[in-house]
């Protein structure tokens, strides 16, 4: 598995969130999640301006095998979507923690929402326990 960058936090459902310098939050799915899904063939993105709740679906990723909702790790407004995923959904397979980001959210209660997420060690522990 790819090294997990230390500045990410995770939902149990395998989404990652990174707080940027301007206070916005970039969201994607973990490398573990993409490997479970297999080759991605389609990403359904939200519209810029959509409001999302914590745990609400903000995108759908589809692999050959399955469709999976992507849940918002923080509440707020979608201010950017990774439009390049429309033509190259496999970017998530190749670089889940980097170029495979999915949306950027302008959070409404940043600190509270981030505090509820798992740090990388806790997330790794969770996926290891799922494997057994």
């Amino acid at each position: 598995m790819n090294e997990i960058p230390g500045d990410l936090k995770f939902m149990k459902s395998h989404e990652w969130a990174r707080v940027e310098d301007d206070g916005t939050v970039t969201v994607g799915i973990s490398d573990h999640a993409q490997s479970l899904l297999g080759d991605l063939v389609y990403v359904e993105l939200p519209n810029v301006g959509d409001t999302v709740e914590v745990g609400g679906a903000c995108a759908v990723v589809e692999s050959v095998k399955a469709a999976s909702d992507v849940y918002a790790p923080v509440a707020g407004e979608v201010i950017k979507v990774n439009a390049s995923l429309a033509d190259k959904p496999e970017t998530i397979n190749e670089d889940a923690f980097g170029d495979g980001w999915i949306v950027v959210i302008k959070p409404t209660s940043l600190q509270d929402d981030m505090d509820n997420l798992l740090d990388p060690d806790a997330y790794v522990e969770q996926i290891e326990s799922e494997d057994h």
């Binding site: 297999g38 080759d39 063939v41 050959v64 095998k65 397979n93």
Partner: peptide, 8 residues
């Protein structure tokens, strides 16, 4: 085996 890396 479902795949050996990439099904596609």
């Amino acid at each position: 085996p479902i795949n050996y890396g990439s099904q596609i």
